[in-house]
Design a binder for these strands. Structure first.
Lengths: 347, 347
DNA sequence: CTGTTAGCGCGTTCAT
DNA sequence: ATGAACGCGCTAACAG
């Protein structure tokens, strides 16, 4: 007999049945609120007895046992690689808000090993950010196994799982062109992953729009950084300390832009005056800071993500029949850090 | 038959047994690596057959079913109220690092409803931050039910669960006294909870040490704020915009201190020169920023927390027999934002 | 209409 | 190396 401690301590449905003087079936029907619907009716008197007994013993159904029968865990998993990113926190918040009234608990998986965890652990639906091409097969396999996945990726093709695309590329175009209206000395501040940043769509929006506008890309104005906020701050400082500093900075994420604003202010620049800074993602943090951050981002993104995830979680247990692709139109949010400028205002 | 989809799709131990031509018991022994130890011996040939079959079918044991028998989920839960706080992220990181080699998955609970979730969901151990007096009974009940809890709280008494105390008070004393060596115009920047901040030990370290040093507490120098980083930034800005601004700021958390540094720099102050700023918590973020943040904090905190949590998770299933109290000595970390000063340097 | 019996669905584990 | 029981909660089918 394993864990006699728990056994001796945690009340089971059988104990409740004994305490109430009824069968376990009756207890199950009463406590899962399913009497009348499909199952047999239970008199109010009996229901009372059962509920009282349950309270007296402090009974709570064992979710693991329930899951084995029903296939539901009342749980969704959020696999988030950059927990510190405001973007991740926004996802968490939106999902929590939507999940609570449904009795569903969002659990966050902090590292990126969703592939391993999902092999054995089970949730009613799973949100995966930062998937990439190479994960395609893994995702397809998991989906075929009955996992309901909602994957955030710009280019993945859905196969038994849903894909959410932020459509960031046109949005980034908006951001760069916004700066190009009034500037020619436009710098780019971007995070470098393991594979460099040349391939990133967010970076290419920079080079391609500059070229399209007849502005040569100055290598000195391209600042890649690693290691989060600190790195972004350092890279921005370096940009602004150039003999001929840029008059505008296109940051490929809001958090990089925030760091750039801090760096600029520290160096005595007036953001939105001497220097314009724009971000990507349109996070609340950027919106609330001072000066408020101009940015581009999808509209109503997080709520819709949460809605889709929970719809899947509550939906039929059979695999996702018609996988969906959610594509978000991006919009330019002009705020203080990079106001609207006429052509030739600065250069 | 519920969820025929999953049933039809996800291979079970019985399918593996059939495929390998052995019994489910044998499969179980082989795949859980328990042959020889307690379980019966299984020949290498059979073991091979089983493993091959498992791979062929892509079998993965169902954790829910396993949990129902063994009482273990190979999971720990981290209940963290302030997900955006660097402190929380440090906890996550330390636990992830320690858990991975043990085959344990840390799951993060983002909102504060651990009480509800733990009623039904089960984990091998649970870390709870931001508990308070009023949670004492809930915690004790959960512990009595067999939950293994590690609770972070300054004053809670352990009853069947472990308590981690950061012993922040003496640390805060160090911080305030550090500033008082060279300053008399010392301000306090602190978050206000629902119950105000007067009761907070971190705040009282401010008032009491000022009084002890014969410095009157100037109400104008006490800045409470709400709503995270943005609020801290605003409150710090207000402090520094006073007709007679303070020459030093004691922030009751590192993230407030970071905001204060940003605000000060924006206003043209030289941090560590015109104005000294010290934080509480000694986070990596503060250490890595520029100027580096002076702070006070416990030594080796996160690793030890992770160690205790996982020790409990791996430990016997019977409730925690001898609950432990982990008390961390705090230390002063003098860095650039508030260097060591002799008496009377500034006032 | 009310309640129970019996058996399901897992992986684990003890006798055989 | 195995059959069968076990732990849990759920639920179809049956009995009163």
């Amino acid at each position: 007999m394993p864990e006699s401690g728990i056994n001796g301590i945690r009340p089971t449905i059988r104990m409740v049945a004994a305490e109430a003087g009824v069968s376990t079936a009756t207890v199950s029907y009463v406590l899962s609120g399913r009497r009348g619907d499909g199952g047999p009716g239970v008199s109010d008197v009996t229901a009372r007895k059962v509920k009282d007994a349950a309270v007296r013993l402090g009974y709570q159904p064992n979710q693991a046992a329930r899951a084995i029968r029903t296939g539901r865990t009342n749980t969704v998993i959020l696999s988030l690689t950059m927990l510190s990113d405001p973007w991740s926190l926004a996802v968490v918040e939106a999902v929590q808000l939507a999940a609570r009234p449904l009795g569903i608990t969002p659990l966050i998986l902090g590292d990126a090993d969703w592939a391993k965890v999902l092999q054995s652990h089970t949730a009613d639906a799973v949100f995966v950010d930062a998937a990439s091409e190479k994960d395609w097969e893994t995702l397809a396999t998991l989906a075929a196994r009955g996992h309901k996945l909602v994957v955030f990726d710009e280019s993945l093709e859905p196969v038994g799982f849903d894909v959410i695309r932020s459509g960031s590329r046109p949005g980034c175009d908006l951001a760069v062109r916004h700066l190009l209206r009034g500037h020619r000395k436009v710098a780019c501040l971007t995070a470098v992953g393991p594979g460099g940043f040349a391939a990133s769509q967010r970076y290419r929006a920079y080079t391609e729009n500059l070229e399209a506008a007849g502005v040569a890309v100055n290598p000195e104005y391209v600042a890649g950084f690693e290691r989060g906020t600190a790195g972004a701050y350092a890279a921005a400082t370096q940009l602004l300390s150039l003999p001929e500093p840029p008059t505008a900075i296109y940051a490929t994420s809001d958090y990089a832009a925030v760091s750039a604003i801090n760096a600029a202010q520290r160096l005595g620049f007036t953001v939105g005056g001497d220097i314009d800074i724009i971000g990507v993602g349109n996070t609340v943090e950027g919106e609330q800071m001072s000066p408020s951050l101009s940015s581009v981002g999808p509209v109503d993104f997080f709520d819709k993500v949460a809605r889709l995830l929970l719809e899947r979680a509550m939906g039929p247990d059979a695999g996702v029949d018609r996988p969906r692709v959610l594509d978000f139109p991006w919009q330019l949010f002009v705020r203080e850090s990079a106001p609207l400028r006429g052509p030739g205002t600065m250069n």
